[in-house]
């Protein structure tokens, strides 16, 4: 049972205020948002920062919801199709972090898109947002293709991401979005 204490210590040392691992639906999204919101309210966080955290959380969670439905992993596989969502908070910033399996075939395109986003400044991201919103149609999964752009704009920092090998078909995509608590 050592892992109980280990997990607890990890959460403390990483300053995690909320961790959810499992299946993601719109209902879990709403529950997680409500919990995080109560946490932000009770800590008396400044409203502008609170809104940015909420904003990035929604996009990150809805990204997972949209993309988790497309996975059909074989029964008995050690590789779970479930995803993870967490928030950490220290004196300087909030970090919103997600991890979810994605098909290996999607890794190159996603890497390209995120690298492209990270190469843009504030104005570049704004132009990108307007370009996409003018030309996009809502996908079958309900996405507008704007989630990452919006997260980058609200964060004001580069989106950090990595991929980990899971099995022959899937990589685990980890994303970290920082929201500074310091005044600009």
């Amino acid at each position: 049972m050592n892992y109980i204490y280990d997990l607890h210590r990890t959460m403390m040392s990483q300053k995690l205020i909320l961790v959810y691992d499992g299946d993601f639906t719109q209902e879990t999204t709403k529950s997680i948002l409500a919990m995080a919101e109560r946490n932000l309210d009770s800590s008396g966080e400044e409203s502008g920062i609170k809104r940015k955290v909420f904003n990035v959380m929604v996009e990150a969670l809805q990204n997972i919801v949209k993309h988790s439905s497309e996975q059909g992993l074989t029964a008995g596989s050690l590789v779970s199709k479930s995803a993870i969502f967490m928030i950490s908070k220290d004196d300087k910033k909030y970090c919103i972090m997600t991890g979810n399996p994605i098909p290996k075939g999607s890794v190159a395109k996603l890497t390209h898109n995120l690298d492209d986003l990270n190469s843009k400044d504030k104005e570049g991201l704004k132009e990108m947002y307007k370009e996409i919103i003018k030309n996009t149609q809502i996908s079958e999964k309900g996405g507008a293709g704007l989630g990452f752009v919006d997260m980058a704009r609200k964060s004001g920092e580069k989106l950090e991401f990595t991929f980990h090998n899971m099995d022959a078909e899937y990589d685990f995509f980890c994303l970290k979005v920082n929201i500074s608590r310091e005044k600009e």
């Binding site: 809104r51 909420f54 904003n55 929604v58 996009e59 809805q62 919103i133 996009t136 809502i138 309900g142 996405g143 507008a144 704007l146 989630g147 752009v149 919006d150």
Partner: peptide, 8 residues
């Protein structure tokens, strides 16, 4: 507040 899917 609105999400990006709503913004479209």
């Amino acid at each position: 507040y609105f999400n990006t899917a709503s913004s479209k």
